[in-house]
Design a protein around this nucleic acid. Structure first.
Lengths: 349, 349
DNA sequence: TGACAAAATTGGAACGTTCCAATTATCTTG
DNA sequence: CAAGATAATTGGAACGTTCCAATTTTGTCA
């Protein structure tokens, strides 16, 4: 059962027309008579024909494969899962299908999967590059005219489009908000210092402090893995300082959750005894206790926009690089809402 | 730049051999002389040739497309993201690449993406079916000899392999553990009652109570959306009962987190004043505060096993359905560890 | 109704690969 | 060194589709 593939010739035969006519109805050409179209479609249904895009794509030669690729550096991070969902939405409704691969921050794996996707004929790629990705890694892709959209992270020197969130402005707003609440010892917690994203956010932190005429104390910047565990580690270190911070902006929400965990371990109540602000606005941020004040970047929306940009470039045939920075907004919830008296009590510790 | 595709003929030309020879070196055939192999490979590198799997697959006709599909019902749920990562691992190292699609519980979308993947020539499919999937939806796939592995959820009547976790045993163990700690009013919180998974877990709950000679009180079973918000709602309702439960097993971890949130909103300390057990062991379970006692199903491992099973069937050429139930284990952390005195205090409220 | 236009249909070549059968080059060895 | 065996190479057909140019059918109207 099901051994023999039904081809366009089989249905041409059965419908009493030529394969060319069948091909025409497959692509909904207006050239074909309504009656024959109906007959052919009926036969198609009856015989259980399935269109062979591989063959079609081979003949059409270049590009229109209706496949795009998306490769991310860490799919276990729900930020990227959300992003993938956003991409999936627009890609799906445009009749495309997506290859998805996870690189787990390995540039070797990344090279392999991109090569593999290329062999399979993707007509575009959305890439959240692994740490250490070199512009040379993308060279062959763009040389062959395949549009690439980088998301979240940029690859310096690569002539590809990018869509990143406004890390600088986001962190600046977060710090300003805390200063407005009366904090002046604000820590910057988490993240790896060798990434562009980290440095953009850190710069936002510094600039905000400068703008408000506050000194930036380097000991208040403590880096760590950008994970929940990293957040725990970072707050531990920060609480060891002889002059403790009273608030923290965190590299991302995962770190922020870790910071909350760490605070509780020290019998401090996040949002009451210590103000915490995250970055990303992952889905758990609003339901966590306390609800996390954070910079909302709407990963799903980013995925949608990245996909739209990519499809635009694919359809345009030619893709000139454009760099979009996606604006970002502070969502105030409970984790930053330290009441004055409590904060004062803490600063006396 | 990059307009003209480099083909096997081009490199044959440049290397001074025939296209057949080039084809032979591409598939690493032992028939070709070392010297020519080296020369051809050099030319391949120089010209920046990329293999066209579409064309190859067309000639080889059936099956060996090196593409598998994975479609899940909710990628925003980190359980499925983890599962996808597991699949990705084994699929990637087997030289395959995967289409990923999210159905968001829509059978229509599911039908579309499966059809689309089929047109693109997947040689196997891993499916976590959307609610309401009918075995007829999978009929054409299996009829054409494409192996399908269902994960997490089964589709009754479909002649496909499945890999589900042992919901019954997992919930039974959770309840036994709570009873062992001295609880006798244990709630079952969250989940939609019209799903097979819900009923399996509920049955495990009932059977465990019966086994321990405890009555099952129907008012202690409160269903809700299987989400964090649903967990909040469920515990709210449960705390309204005139005879409150002292512990709860939850439909999944997301619900369990919600339950913890809801408890805190009522000034109850999860793990101290009330025992909570989840199901799934998502990645956050171990770092949450309190760390969540839960049934570990290792979604990544499930993904790996599903992929292995699928690849086995693809390689075997023929796929007879096998149903695997993946065993599951109770991971005891803090959220269930109510100390005796506290529990007694609570039960007096 | 004959002639011309418009509409509908069609055969074959092409896309880039693999496979088969056949051919040519290279070794063995008596 | 002839001749058989083995190693290496090769030309063409085939995979399932699309596209082009050409052909056939149908429609229009003087």
């Amino acid at each position: 059962m099901g051994k023999e593939r039904v081809t366009v010739i089989d249905i041409a035969h059965a419908a009493g027309v030529s394969k060319s006519t069948v091909s025409l109805v497959l692509q909904a050409s207006p050239l074909v008579n309504e009656a024959t179209r109906a007959k052919v479609n009926a036969v198609i249904r009856d015989l259980g024909y399935v269109y062979n895009r591989g063959a079609a794509n081979l003949r059409q030669s270049n590009s229109k494969s209706k496949i795009i690729g998306i490769v991310v550096n860490d799919l276990t991070n729900s930020f990227f899962a959300e992003l993938a969902v956003g991409v999936d939405m627009v890609v799906q409704s445009a009749g495309y299908v997506q290859f998805l691969a996870n690189t787990a921050e390995s540039v070797d794996r990344q090279r392999e999967v991109i090569a593999s996707m290329r062999e399979h004929g993707i007509s575009g790629l959305i890439l959240s590059p692994a740490r250490g990705t070199d512009s040379a890694d993308l060279k062959p892709l763009v040389a062959s005219g395949i549009p690439v959209v980088n998301v979240v992270r940029q690859v310096s020197g690569a002539k590809v489009s990018s869509l990143v969130s406004d890390n600088h402005a986001g962190m600046r707003d977060a710090v300003r908000h805390l200063v407005g609440l009366g904090h002046h010892r604000i820590a910057f917690l988490g993240g790896f210092p060798d990434t562009a994203v980290f440095n953009e956010r850190l710069q936002g932190y510094r600039d905000a402090l400068s703008d408000m005429d506050l000194a930036v104390h380097e000991e208040l910047v403590v880096s760590s893995a950008p994970s929940r565990a990293g957040g725990v580690a970072a707050i531990e270190r920060a609480l060891l300082l002889r002059e403790r911070p009273t608030a923290a902006v965190c590299f991302n929400d995962a770190v922020a959750f870790g910071v909350c965990d760490g605070l509780r371990a020290h019998r401090l109540d996040p949002g009451e005894d210590f103000a915490v602000i995250g970055f990303d606005d992952v889905i758990e941020a609003q339901t966590a206790v306390p609800a996390l004040t954070t910079i909302s970047v709407d990963p799903q929306g980013m995925g949608r926009r990245a996909a739209q940009l990519l499809l635009k470039q694919i359809n345009a045939g030619r893709a000139d690089a454009e760099a979009i920075v996606s604006s970002v907004r502070l969502v105030v919830r409970q984790s930053c809402g330290a009441a004055i008296d409590k904060r004062e009590r803490l600063s006396l510790l």
